[in-house]
Amino acid sequence: MSKLLIAKNLHASTADKELLHGIDLRIDKGETVVVVGPNGAGKSTLARSLMGVSDFDYSGSISFAGKDVAKLPCEERAKLGMFLSYQDPVAIPGLPVGEMLRSTIEAHGKKVRLREFKLTLAKYLEKLDLNPFSGERELNVDFSGGEKKKLEILQMLMLRPQLAILDEIDSGLDVDAARLVSRVIREYQDETNCSLAIVTHNMRILQSLNVDRVYVIRDGLISCVGDVGMLEDIRKHGFKNA
């Protein structure tokens, strides 16, 4: 498999604290990589660092699709095909979901044909079992926690990234919704051969997915890299052996 993303010696810090202490990570094209770890290990920081969200200082190298993206702002990484779903999606009062998506697709340099856009949006809303009028509602305002997570997946489906970094996408989803979202992600991956970086604590989202590699993160460092079998061990024994 060809390499899609390679991060080397990745550090992230705030003004007074280093949160990631030199992480190496690789994601190949079409691959599903899982990042697990106990609370506070640095999982979300790693997800945000890969995307380049500007709330930390970073150092280290990141290449994506053969390009050095370490110095690129997150919007440029998004345009190259990276996507981050948020653990806590941000509410933007007054801004309809559909309008945000249309503007974003245009920002990616793609022409939006309104009729086609509406049909696609309706198709994905139905697929995710979201209210058909969700596109007219304000982004992440008055949606339930589970619906907000589905809206993150909706954005992924509409923006069609090569790499989706999904940060705790299953938190807030009930059992049926987690199964549905897992299946939708799998279908998208089958359709596009995209790569997935799944940051998860409770691992429910993995049920429909074929995991290629598992990274265990502890105290801002990768403590262990293994295959899908390692997840079974973690389920049984927690992180004490990882």
Binding site: V53, E75, A78, L84, Y86, V90, I92, T104, A107
Partner: peptide
């Protein structure tokens, strides 16, 4: 937070 959220989708800060 709002600006960063939209930036991660591909919009510039001004957009």
């Amino acid at each position: 937070r709002e600006i960063n959220y939209l930036r991660t989708r591909g919009l510039s800060e001004d957009e």
